[in-house]
């Protein structure tokens, strides 16, 4: 049975169902219940944006509030994972990776390799990313390329409520450390989601829409931006194929390459920056492995190489929108050698 629920509800439901299914799943993070030690409600917040609301009353021993101490509790989640728990730790904003990165990239990511394949670290780090909420430079970044570049980590970017639930279930069941990136502007989006539990395998892109003229690879919130652009372009007869990789690590190279071989043109839309980012990575992939299929240079639509600005008109200019995507598609289509 599918119902229409929000991205936030889909994530919450995945957590509830996995905690019910598996007693080794624990949830921890700053204000994940909210109100620990305070005189009022004990499930006051359910996470800063309410994603984990209701979990603590249901699983009082397995939902832990933490001090604002990311190194310690992200590291603790990782340590607990090596000892048989399946912790889902919340790094509130991906921007805060700077205060706990060592535990993620030097510890969790490397245990299995450093220890000769004898470590299993099934930790999930849920984290919010992305601009659009006027949250300024330290609460708005799309830093997942940093994690994507680290061997040993998996990185998921759900683009819809259906994707959010299925990818989070997979993340929790996965035996490798997973960075699960939730776009804060997607929390209130609604979509059809099965009530039953399901896991979407990592490393398989979804083809959001089929079309023969141009491939648009888009990630996370940029998928809906790409769809909006594709709708505009459809009116002028341009058929876009939209590929959502779902995970940047592992990356479904085959689906991207097959699509480009079919369309001959590629635009990558990413909210991460233009340097050493996903767009550059995918452009390089296609240039290296499908050069013969390309009928135009690869187009990329990313924010500029700047911090995320605060003032609304500036932030609106910063985030890629459908108009910019449509323009990039047109320029790829109009390109003449």
């Amino acid at each position: 049975m599918s119902r229409n629920i929000t991205y936030r509800e889909a994530i919450n439901e995945a957590l509830v169902q996995e905690m019910e299914r598996d007693p080794s799943v624990v949830v921890l993070g700053e204000d994940n219940a909210g109100g620990a030690g305070a005189p009022g409600e004990s499930d006051a917040w359910g996470g800063v944006l309410g994603v984990t609301k209701g979990l603590q009353p249901r699983f009082p021993d397995r939902v832990l509030d933490t001090p604002i101490s990311e190194s310690a509790f992200i590291g603790a989640a990782i340590g607990a994972a090596t000892r048989g728990l399946r912790p889902v730790a919340e790094l509130m904003f991906i921007d805060f990776m700077g205060v706990c990165l060592d535990q993620i990239f030097n510890q969790a990511a490397k245990f299995r390799y450093m220890f000769g394949g004898r470590a299993v670290t099934p930790v999930v780090i849920r984290t919010m990313y992305g601009a659009g909420l006027r949250a300024a430079a330290q609460h708005s970044q799309s830093l997942y390329p940093v994690f994507t570049s680290v061997p040993g980590l998996k990185v998921a970017l759900p683009s819809s409520p259906y994707e959010a639930k299925g990818l989070l279930v997979q993340a929790i069941r996965d035996d490798d450390p997973v960075i699960f990136c939730e776009h804060k502007a997607l929390y209130d989006t609604v979509g059809e989601v099965p009530a039953e539990s399901y896991a979407i395998p990592f490393g398989e892109a979804q083809i959001v829409r089929e079309g023969g003229d141009v491939t648009i690879v888009a990630l996370g919130r940029m998928v809906s931006v790409a769809v909006e652009a594709a709708d505009e372009l459809a009116a002028s007869g341009v058929r876009c194929e939209i590929v959502d990789p779902r995970t940047t690590s592992p990356l479904d190279e085959d689906t991207i390459l097959e699509s480009v071989e079919h369309t001959g043109r590629l635009v990558v839309v990413d909210e991460a920056g233009p340097r050493c980012g996903t767009a550059a990575d995918i452009a390089a992939l296609v240039a290296g492995k499908a050069f013969g299929a390309l009928r135009a240079p690869v187009g990329t639509v990313t924010p500029p190489h700047t911090p995320v600005p605060f003032s609304p008109p500036l932030e609106d200019l910063y985030v890629p929108d459908a108009t910019r995507v449509a323009a990039a598609v047109k320029s790829v289509l109009d390109w003449k050698a």
Binding site: S24, V26, G75, A76, G79, A80, T82, R83, G84, L85
Partner: peptide
């Protein structure tokens, strides 16, 4: 651990696992 101070957070987690 090649990182000075790398272990204590992990130990909190191992202790948490035992506590849970």
């Amino acid at each position: 651990n090649g990182i000075v101070g790398g272990g204590p957070p992990l130990v909190c987690g191992a202790a948490l696992a035992s506590k849970v």
